[in-house]
């Protein structure tokens, strides 16, 4: 019923949206893979990062992409500190408690932002916000194309870091066997906090990639949380290539089901796939081992 051109555009839209999903899921899957916790504060942290970009643009005139110089280390430090000083000590390593602590953090972040910025939905206007790349009859949004490449770059860097660096090796060791890693002298608490910081830093990048075309209000992060969970499961919990492929896949599924079933009911497509994957192949679609 739709022309091939529209279908192609929908797929491309899905890939562009999905790449940002992938980046958000990347942080989540990393934290899950190492700490084995589901971080409910992930969405609220994304919101905080987006507000940081908004403020840096408004107050210091920083371009959203340039703002990463500040926000990426800033969120890494914040994530590190929160895991080290709050989540770790308060949760006593218990799953149920970690859940409550991250939930508590989400409530705190979201409402602190509400008290500070109020409830208005804000966006920033950058000169290239409406720029497009013309491919035949298609108009591809420049900031969203940049986002795709940004995400690929971050995923590659993260993968290299985990594979090659000493800290990366320590992270993988902790993820595999916590007690064993501790025995060979790895500071597990430090590695946990570094991982958490990396997860938050991914969100800082995602915030900068989103802000030129998206908007921010104190609740906006919630819009991405469920979809990020879905991707983490699809890709196999803890798998970086899985999160990347899962994000792109979900983006396209959402885009096409939105086109054919309507945006509202189309959301069901994601969850049905999610349930089916869990029931049939809980280790994820993209081959990560349990």
């Amino acid at each position: 019923m739709y022309s091939p051109e529209i279908l192609l555009t929908a797929v491309l839209n899905g890939l562009m949206t999905g790449s940002v999903y992938a980046l958000i899921a990347l942080g989540l899957t990393l934290v899950y893979g190492v700490l084995h916790i589901i971080n409910f504060a992930h969405g609220a942290t994304l919101t905080a990062a987006m507000f940081a970009v908004y403020v840096l643009h408004g107050a210091a005139g920083l371009d959203p992409y340039v703002a990463m110089i500040v926000t990426v280390p800033g969120l890494f430090a914040l994530g590190y500190a929160v895991q080290r000083l709050v989540i770790g000590p308060a949760s006593h390593g218990d799953d149920g408690n970690i859940l409550l602590v991250t939930l508590g953090l989400a409530i705190i972040i979201e409402n602190a932002l509400l008290a500070w910025f109020r409830s208005d939905t804000r966006s920033i206007d950058v000169p290239y916000g409406f720029s497009v790349i013309e491919v035949g009859t298609l108009f591809l949004s420049l900031p969203r194309v940049i986002a795709v490449f940004g995400v690929l770059l971050v995923a590659l860097l993260l993968w290299l870091f985990l594979a090659r660096s000493t800290t990366g090796q320590a992270i993988r060791a902790v993820a595999k066997e916590k007690t064993g890693a501790a025995l060979v002298g790895i500071d597990v608490g430090h590695i946990y906090a570094v991982t958490f910081g990396l997860g938050a830093a991914c969100l800082a990048v995602a915030a900068s990639l989103l802000m030129p075309t998206f908007l921010v209000n104190p609740r906006i992060g919630n819009a991405f949380v469920l979809v990020a969970f879905t991707i983490v499961v699809l890709g196999g919990m803890g798998s970086i290539p899985g999160a990347l492929l899962g994000g792109l896949f979900i983006g396209v599924v959402e885009s096409l089901s939105g086109l054919f079933m309507g945006e509202s009911l189309g959301q069901i497509g994601i969850f049905l796939i999610f349930i089916l994957v869990l029931l049939i192949r809980p280790t994820g679609l993209f081959g990560a081992k349990a």
């Binding site: 508590g104 953090l105 989400a106 409530i107 705190i108 979201e110 409402n111 602190a112 932002l113 509400l114 008290a115 109020r118 409830s119 104190p218």
Partner: peptide, 11 residues
């Protein structure tokens, strides 16, 4: 100051 009570609740 909307939200402050919920911040306290979270803490």
């Amino acid at each position: 100051l909307p939200g402050v009570d919920l911040v306290l609740f979270g803490v």
